[in-house]
């Protein structure tokens, strides 16, 4: 049993034929070869697989590919424009907001959902928001700094 899933991925119309049990993260990585979205725990705890579906952050290991048929999906690959990093990505680089980098795509996508609804978050709000994103290098301090700097840059339209 297969199903055709059509969606807008990072601004482009794409479609793929997948088994109905296919997870969104498998559709992205295995079928569409967008491997920036990572699989960490595969149990909706770690947040390495966070992407946006219709402007809300979700864990793509806990959604079916079929559920995004007709949806607008944004992944880490959709952030940089014309070779320029997104201000939130730039902030992670400037603040050394990553060590091994495995959790980073999920951290950045999660941070952007926070900032979309709360453009000037406090440090406490950032830490609370990161409930669902784990960094096993435990580099949380610089991740929080990065998100605060990224939010500031985005407020300036940077």
């Amino acid at each position: 049993m297969t199903v055709t899933v059509s969606m807008t991925l990072n601004g482009k119309k794409v479609s793929a034929d997948v088994e109905e049990r296919t997870l969104l993260v498998s559709l992205l990585r295995d079928h569409l070869r967008q491997t920036g979205t990572h699989v960490g725990c595969d149990t909706s705890q770690c947040g390495a697989c966070v992407v946006h579906v219709n402007d809300r952050s979700v864990k793509s290991c806990t959604m079916l590919a079929s559920q995004v048929d007709g949806a607008d999906v944004l992944t880490i690959e959709g952030l940089a424009k014309n070779g320029e990093l997104h201000p939130m990505q730039e902030a992670f680089r400037d603040n050394h907001g990553l060590q091994c980098g495995f959790c980073t795509p999920g951290m950045v996508m999660s941070a952007l959902d926070l900032v979309a609804n709360n453009p000037d978050p406090s440090e406490r709000e950032v830490r609370e928001w990161l409930e669902g994103n784990l960094c096993r290098c435990t580099g949380y301090h610089n991740i929080v700094k990065s998100i605060l700097a990224g939010a500031k840059a985005m407020r300036k339209g940077g």
Partner: peptide, 9 residues
Amino acid sequence: IGDPQVRNR
């Protein structure tokens, strides 16, 4: 409940 991504779904 859970975390922000769980609350979004």
